[in-house]
Simulated assay, not measured.
Amino acid sequence: MPEADAPTTVRPDAPADLLAAWTALLHRCGATGDPGPAGRELLRRWSEPQRRYHTVDHLRAVLGHVDALAGHAADPDTVRLAAWFHDAVYRPDRSENEERSAVLAVRALDGAGLPAARVAEVARLVRLTVTHHPEPGDPDGEVLCDADLAVLGGSPEAYAAYAAAVREEYAFVPEPDFRAGRAAVLRRLLALPALFRTPGAHARLDAPARANLAAEIARLEAAG
C-alpha cells in the first residue's frame, strides 16, 4: 500500500453513491474547488487488496450508523468526515494506522480549504478510534466510536462473517499468535465500562455485542 504521503493514481470507478455523499459533505463543510479527486483517492484507499473487513462496505456501514446516531452528535458532518478518514490508511502489519489516517485527514482537508478548527477536530476523532474510549461530554466521539463498533452487535451470522474477514486480514500471523492476540483485544473491549455510549446504540447493540464477543473468546480458547 502507498505511504500516507505518497502520490497515487486516482480511481476512476469509485462507487457513485459514496462519491456523491463525499462531494455533498465537503460542499456543506465549506470546501473550495472540486472534492471529486480527493474522494476518489479515499475510495481507492478503502479498496486496497490487503483489506477484507476494512473495506468500502465498512466505510458505507459506518457512515450509515453515523447518520442513524446523528441526533446525538454536536457536529454530525465533522463526525462524517472522521468516518471517511478513520481507516483510510490501513496496514494490518502496522500499528500506527490511526495516526497516519489522522495525518492524511489534516493534509486532505487543509487542501480542501476547510476551517482549521474543524480539521483539527476530525484528526482528534480519527485518533480516538485507537481506544474507542471517548471521555464524558464528547458526543461526537461517542457517535464515531459507536458507529465503528456497531458490527460487534450484529446477528451471530454477521458477526461470524466479520470475524472471518478480520482473520483473513491477518493471514500472515500464525494461528496460535492470532488466537492469543485476538482474544486479548476482545477482552479489552469487554472490559470497557460501556461498549456503546449513545443511548440508541447502547439499547440496541450492547447485549448482543457482549454475547458475540464472549462467544468468540470461547471459540478461540477452545481452538487453543
Rank of each mutant, 00 (worst) to 15 (best):
R44C: 00
P156F: 03
D75E: 14
L190N: 03
F178E: 11
H72C: 09
L81C: 06
E175V: 13
G141D: 13
L25G: 03
L125D: 08
V66Y: 07
S47C: 03
E96L: 04
V185K: 14
G141E: 13
A88N: 05
A108I: 11
L109A: 08
A4L: 10
E41A: 13
P193N: 06
D206M: 07
S155V: 00
A222W: 09
R94M: 09
P199G: 07
M1I: 11
A6E: 15
A123R: 07
H133S: 11
A21N: 06
C29V: 01
E175P: 07
A183S: 12
P115T: 09
R219F: 00
D93C: 00
D75V: 02
G181Q: 13
H72P: 05
E168G: 08
V143I: 12
W84I: 01
N212P: 01
R179C: 05
A70L: 09
G137E: 02
V10P: 00
P15S: 07
A211Y: 08
E168S: 15
A105Y: 07
L42P: 10
V122H: 05
E142A: 15
A73P: 07
G153Y: 03
A160K: 08
H58Q: 13
R94C: 08
L43R: 04
P199K: 10
T8P: 02
R100M: 06
P35L: 11
V126F: 03
A102D: 06
F196T: 01
A214E: 14
I217V: 14
M1N: 09
A74G: 13
G30M: 05
E96S: 06
L69D: 12
D87N: 15
H72M: 03
V103E: 14
D148W: 02
R100S: 01
L19E: 14
A203S: 09
A223S: 15
A117E: 15
A112Y: 00
V106R: 15
A160V: 11
R11F: 05
G224I: 09
I217W: 00
P37K: 03
G36E: 15
D140Q: 10
W46R: 10
R28F: 11
L186D: 04
L104K: 13
L220I: 12
E135H: 08
R197K: 05
E157T: 14
A68S: 12
E175W: 07
R91T: 01
A223T: 02
R51C: 08
L149D: 11
V185F: 10
E98T: 09
R204W: 04
E169I: 15
Y170C: 05
R40L: 06
A183H: 04
P156T: 06
A207M: 01
P193K: 03
Y90V: 14
P136K: 01
E121L: 12
D146M: 11
R107I: 06
Y53T: 00
S155W: 04
